[in-house]
C-alpha cells in the first residue's frame, strides 16, 4: 500500500477516535450540561444536609440554576455550611429560602430555591438564612411509629 493511502487511513482512524470521544463526552456524559457561564456563590446553613454531595444541582422551579461547590461543618453552631454557585443570569431576592429535597422517592438530593419577595437581590458572598434541612427517612418513620404508638396508648 502506498504511503499516501496509509496516511489517509490513519487519519480516518484517529478521526474515528475523536468522534468516539466526542460521543462519549456529549451523548453519554454531561459535558453538554456543563456550563462555563459566570456564577456567583451563596452560602446557606443547614441543620442536616442528609446525602447532599458536592456538584449536586441547585434547582428553582425544577430548573437547574447552579451547583453545590463546597460543604463544610461549622463546629460553633454544629451546622453544615453549604456553598453553591448560581448562574449569573439568574437573580434571586434576598429572602429566598433554600431547602434540601430529593428527586424521586429515593433519588439523589438537591437544593431547591424558593424565591421570596424582597426588592434586594442576592449577591456573591451573601448567605441564605431561611433554610430547611433534608428529610431523613429513618426519623420520619420513627416519628410515624411513635405517633401511632401514642395514639394506641391514648385509645386504651
Amino acid at each position: 500500500m502506498s504511503n499516501h493511502k496509509i496516511d489517509v487511513w490513519v487519519g480516518l482512524f484517529v478521526f474515528l477516535g475523536i468522534i468516539a470521544l466526542v460521543f462519549l463526552a456529549l451523548r453519554a456524559g454531561n459535558l453538554s450540561s456543563f456550563s462555563f457561564a459566570e456564577t456567583y456563590s451563596v452560602q446557606a446553613k443547614f441543620d442536616n444536609i442528609g446525602g447532599l454531595k458536592v456538584r449536586a444541582p441547585v434547582k428553582s422551579a425544577g430548573v437547574v440554576v447552579g451547583r453545590v461547590s463546597d460543604i463544610r461543618f461549622d463546629d460553633q453552631t454544629y451546622q453544615a455550611i453549604v456553598t453553591f454557585n448560581i448562574d449569573q443570569a439568574f437573580e434571586f431576592p434576598l429572602d429566598t429560602s433554600a431547602s434540601i429535597l430529593t428527586s424521586g422517592l429515593l433519588g439523589e438530593q438537591y437544593i431547591g430555591l424558593d424565591a421570596g419577595g424582597d426588592d434586594l437581590m442576592l449577591a456573591s458572598g451573601d448567605s441564605i438564612t431561611l433554610t430547611q434541612s433534608a428529610i431523613v427517612l429513618e426519623r420520619l418513620i420513627s416519628q410515624f411509629l411513635y405517633g401511632t404508638a401514642e395514639q394506641e396508648g391514648a385509645a386504651d
Binding site: V14, L16, G17, I19, A20, L24, A28
Partner: peptide, 16 residues
C-alpha cells in the same frame, strides 16, 4: 500508545 486509546473509545461508543 496512539492506537490503544482510540480503540478503547471506539469500543465504548459501539458498546453504548
Amino acid at each position: 500508545i496512539i492506537a490503544m486509546p482510540v480503540l478503547a473509545a471506539v469500543f465504548s461508543m459501539v458498546g453504548i
